[in-house]
């Protein structure tokens, strides 16, 4: 029998946690494994849908493109005009899926657990923006991309969801969570590793 505890994150083979950059770039990187991730799709102009989600999660879905909202312990990232990713604590994704499925039984929407489909690389420190800009064509100047901002974009040749979770003014900031498909995580990690070391 498999041991239920013997789970493996996307980067379990890399031993990356808390890797600190050399080469004068002040930043560190780690994998945030097993964070709960749930894709929610529904009609944003349907006030009943929005109210139902609010009722289930006490959370207002972000409606402005490239933004996020948060009611701890759940936050929501805007992925598209009818698409969000809900982020929750490791292991709590099933409860989020169940409560949404129960609440959204009527009407047209979908709730899909994708916790294992992505992992999160957390990049933090003053040089984070510079490091990201070596592979990401977005304007990452603090005036253009700030705390709470979200973008689905590319870093090098990997599709990512970029989410800024702390500001420059925060201790150890800024912090960026980079969501990447599980099978691209190794590539993206090696990409960062090449740059920071």
């Amino acid at each position: 029998m498999a041991e239920p505890g013997k789970i493996r994150s996307a980067l379990a083979h890399c031993a990356i946690d808390g890797v600190v950059a050399k080469s004068g770039l002040d930043a560190s990187i780690s994998e945030q494994a097993f964070v709960g991730k749930v894709v929610l799709r529904g009609n944003p102009s349907d006030s009943e849908f929005l109210a139902t989600v609010r009722g289930a999660l006490e959370l207002d879905l972000p409606l402005a493109p490239n933004t996020s909202s948060e009611t701890p312990p759940v936050s929501a990232l805007w992925l598209g005009p009818d698409e969000w990713m809900l982020i929750c604590a490791p292991g709590s994704e099933a409860a989020v899926v169940d409560s949404l499925n129960a609440a959204l039984a009527e009407g047209h929407s979908t709730v899909v657990d994708v916790s294992d489909a992505y992992t999160v690389l957390r990049l933090s420190g003053p040089a984070s923006r510079t490091i990201l800009a070596k592979g990401c064509a977005l304007d990452l100047h603090p005036r253009a991309f700030a705390f709470g901002d979200v973008a689905r974009t590319m870093i090098a040749k990997a599709d990512v969801i970029l989410h800024q979770t702390a500001d420059e003014t925060d201790d150890g900031g800024p912090v960026f969570d980079v969501y990447v498909a599980r099978s691209f995580a190794d590539y993206l990690w090696r990409w960062f590793d090449k740059i920071i070391n």
Partner: peptide, 15 residues
């Protein structure tokens, strides 16, 4: 740039 060697193209592996 960095798109050389093992980073020329993403290499995807299964679990």
């Amino acid at each position: 740039g960095r798109h050389v060697g093992g980073l020329f193209d993403p290499v995807r592996g299964t679990p």
